[in-house]
Simulated scan of single mutants.
Amino acid sequence: MSKLSIVVPCYNEEESIPLFYPAVEKVVRQMNDLQIEYWFVNDGSSDNSLAEMRKLHEQNPERVHYVSFSRNFGKEAGLYAGLQAATGDYVVVMDVDLQDPPEFLPQMYELLQTGEYDCIGTRRVDRTGEAKFKSFLSDQFYHVINRISQTNIVPGARDYRMMTRQMVDAVLSLKEYNRFSKGIFSWVGFKTKYLDYHNVERVAGETDWSTWKLFKYAMDGITDFSQAPLSIAVWLGTTSFILSIIGLLFVIIRRIVEPSSSVFGWASLICIILLFGGLQLLCIGILGKYIGRIYMQVKQRPIYIIKEKK
């Protein structure tokens, strides 16, 4: 009998966990030809999320398991830890807030059973209920990253997906410290089919993903899967250099043609200095961003640290 592992990263989700488990159980119990295991990952929650996981484990120790971090390492670390812990022939990643409809699980499994696909993902076709500004930024992120990166990231794609063991092992083989799973899932390849659905609101609690956190996450995705910012820095530097040469020639020629002409005022000189100084700092900052990621990678720190595992 094949086994399906359900990986559920959690951060401050004490209200959602008791609702998530029975909702998913109602669906997976219809999948009689599968052995099911749950892997909840407590990402350093400050509420009673761990207590809820322990409670579920005590009720069904053979079916429900959990991993608890020593502190908050972020969702990417939680997802990676869950994939490492999962032992199933098939692995599905789900959010605990039930924004990932459990009703798709049987269809996902049936499609994988055809052998035509290695992964069945999901894609939101709208963002009803979310702030318009946040939705706008999300749309622009997918537009930008797909223009500057060779790795295609499907707009609206969720982490909610069911994968074969072969694909999971491929994802786990990427040991990078700074992880952007949406890009990694695409980069490893394998044939993927996406199921579309309309946005579903959280069943309980509030999201921890503020606009600022999403923006930083988007920047991580861009620097992880594109060298375009470095190319932009090179072009900005080249343009600045050419403009400065043209300006220098203009001043020299003007001085030769009109020896009595006065030198341009301090205001224009300061503006030019600020312009080129700002461009230099921008380019150095972009370069520093990439060097910083290299620095974190070569230190070989663990992606997460486990405090408790059952």
Rank of each mutant, 00 (worst) to 15 (best):
R71A: 11
F104D: 05
L19N: 03
V171R: 00
M163A: 01
M94G: 01
M163W: 04
P106V: 01
L230Y: 05
G183E: 00
S16Y: 07
D89P: 03
L230Q: 01
T164P: 01
Y197F: 14
W266N: 08
R255P: 03
N48D: 14
S16T: 08
H198F: 14
W235C: 10
G237D: 01
I17L: 02
I286H: 04
L281N: 14
V251F: 13
Q150C: 08
L243D: 04
S231Q: 12
E258V: 13
S260K: 15
L279T: 06
G115C: 06
S70D: 15
P101S: 03
Q107D: 14
I242S: 05
R147T: 11
Q59W: 12
S149C: 07
R71I: 09
E258P: 06
L269G: 08
N32F: 12
A23I: 08
A170I: 01
R293M: 07
A157K: 12
L56V: 12
P259C: 02
T192K: 03
M1T: 03
S261R: 15
Y197R: 06
L274E: 10
I232E: 05
S268M: 13
R254C: 05
L269T: 15
V91D: 00
R293I: 10
F73H: 09
Y38E: 03
A131N: 12
V257E: 12
Y142Q: 07
L105G: 01
D169I: 06
K310D: 10
P155V: 08
S181K: 09
K75C: 11
S240C: 12
D220N: 11
A228N: 12
D139Q: 09
N42L: 04
E110R: 11
K182Y: 15
M53F: 03
Q150R: 13
G221K: 04
M94P: 00
I17P: 00
